[in-house]
Design a protein around this nucleic acid. Structure first.
Length: 224
DNA sequence: ATCTCGATAGTCT
DNA sequence: GACTATCGAGATC
């Protein structure tokens, strides 16, 4: 497991301006940034490996048909969370982009777990024996399987990170609570990788628009 | 490896 | 009443 301490990771957060550079560009540059959540239960962190962009004029966006109680956070300021509940059991985490009143957002679909894997495992409902077995394994393939089970999808990572309705609308540009930090050198092996743009997952409208972003050959994705 | 389907509840037509 | 920015189990190839 990583030897990086929580305090080393907690020094910085992407500023609001990051989320105002343009939704597509921000979605690309959010790859390799670090998502963190500090709660009374503990600290978890993960390197962002898969994002999807949604713009207000995009038929696939929740905001396409205008503002409602559900999507109101998308119309708020950039750098705040938009968390929605779907399929009767899953939460999905987005970061709002563009100026207040413009409802663009970026969905975080997968991360590579970095810190707090035991806490993530408990939140995901893994058995204690399974956690111990995975933790003791030095095998890279086993680590990738574990990562997929914890954070290999938007619903899974929300559960692993303890992100629910409570986080809807919160500011993610300030260290502490829920926030996102710039890429870290210790995870730099992947930072210069080529970015892949592919169709977004699980939508009907605008299904061909290639606004899902991943890093070439990065194994930590929601799908191969 | 790829598929089909059920779970489950909030949201919108 | 239909649909969903999902997940996991079970069937099938």
């Amino acid at each position: 497991m990583s030897e990086t301490s929580a305090s080393e990771l907690q020094h910085a957060a992407l500023p609001q301006e990051f989320y105002l550079q343009g939704t597509i560009e921000a979605a690309r540059r959010m790859l390799n940034c670090v998502l963190m959540h500090e709660t009374s239960g503990g600290f978890v962190a993960g390197r962002i490996t898969e994002t999807e962009a949604y713009t207000q004029d995009d038929p696939a966006s929740h905001a396409y048909r205008g503002k409602t109680a559900r999507n109101a956070a998308m119309f708020g300021p950039a750098g705040h969370a938009y968390v929605y509940f779907t399929y009767g059991m899953h939460f999905c985490f987005n970061v709002v982009t563009a100026a207040e009143g413009v409802a663009d957002a970026i969905l975080i679909r997968a991360v590579e777990p970095i810190e707090g894997l035991e806490l993530m495992s408990r939140r995901r409902g893994l058995a204690e024996g399974e956690i111990a077995r995975l933790h003791s394994s030095a095998d890279q393939k086993m680590r990738e399987r574990w990562a997929f089970a914890l954070c290999g999808g938007p619903g899974k990572l929300c559960q692993a990170f303890g992100i629910t309705r409570t986080e809807n609308g919160v500011d993610v540009t300030t260290p502490g609570g829920l926030w996102i930090a710039p890429p870290r050198p210790e995870f730099g092996a992947l930072q210069s990788r080529e970015i892949c743009a592919t169709p977004r997952i699980g939508i009907r409208q605008a299904a061909e628009t290639p606004w899902r972003f991943t890093l070439k050959n990065d194994p930590y994705q929601s799908r191969k």
